[in-house]
């Protein structure tokens, strides 16, 4: 199957958006404290979420459709579901679907306020100097 070349925007659009959000997060967390620490982390975390999304999609894409066609992405249920090997054997055709997956609930960032260091050692000269000197 031949495919047309994608436009430059189609190739670089998502990476540009993810990169922009990452930079905003990196600088935002530096410029302000409190809420911006969390916003900055969330914005930087977008790149991890995008990677997670791609990996989940890959796994689903790798699973062939069940025999008889129908849905490409069969939900896994406990019990009574063929193993992936049997599914592959039973499947006569493999359907490739490039479409954007239905939205999934992303894992939220852990609420770790209680884990945050409660004290700051500004007297980190030894560290600072050994980093620099």
């Amino acid at each position: 199957m031949s495919r047309k070349d994608l436009s430059l925007w189609a190739v670089f659009g998502t990476p540009l958006v993810v990169g922009g959000l990452s930079l905003t997060g990196l600088i935002g967390a530096l410029l302000d404290d409190g809420a911006w620490d969390w916003i900055g982390s969330a914005l930087l975390g977008v790149c991890v979420i995008v990677i997670g999304w791609a990996l989940v999609r890959r796994r689903r894409w790798a699973s062939p459709a069940p025999a008889g066609g129908g849905r490409c992405y069969s939900p896994r249920r406990s019990g009574g579901v063929a193993s992936s090997v049997r599914m592959r054997m039973a499947s006569s055709t493999v359907t490739m679907v490039w479409a954007w997956l239905p939205r999934r609930r992303m894992a939220t960032l852990p609420s770790s306020a209680s884990l945050r260091p409660t004290t700051a050692m500004a007297g980190t000269l030894a560290t600072e100097c050994s980093r620099i000197l």
């Binding site: 990196l26 967390a29 530096l30 911006w36 620490d37 969390w38 900055g40 982390s41 930087l44 975390g45 790149c47 991890v48 990677i51 960032l109 852990p110 770790s112 884990l115 945050r116 260091p117 600072e128 980093r131 620099i132």
Partner: peptide, 26 residues
């Protein structure tokens, strides 16, 4: 001076540090 926090990722609390570690692994 500004390069140090941006390199070490120690300026935005534990959440940012965890992300720094994940990105380092990546």
């Amino acid at each position: 001076s500004l390069s140090q926090p941006l390199h070490f990722g120690d300026y935005g609390g534990l959440a940012l540090k965890i992300l720094w570690a994940i990105l380092d692994l990546i």
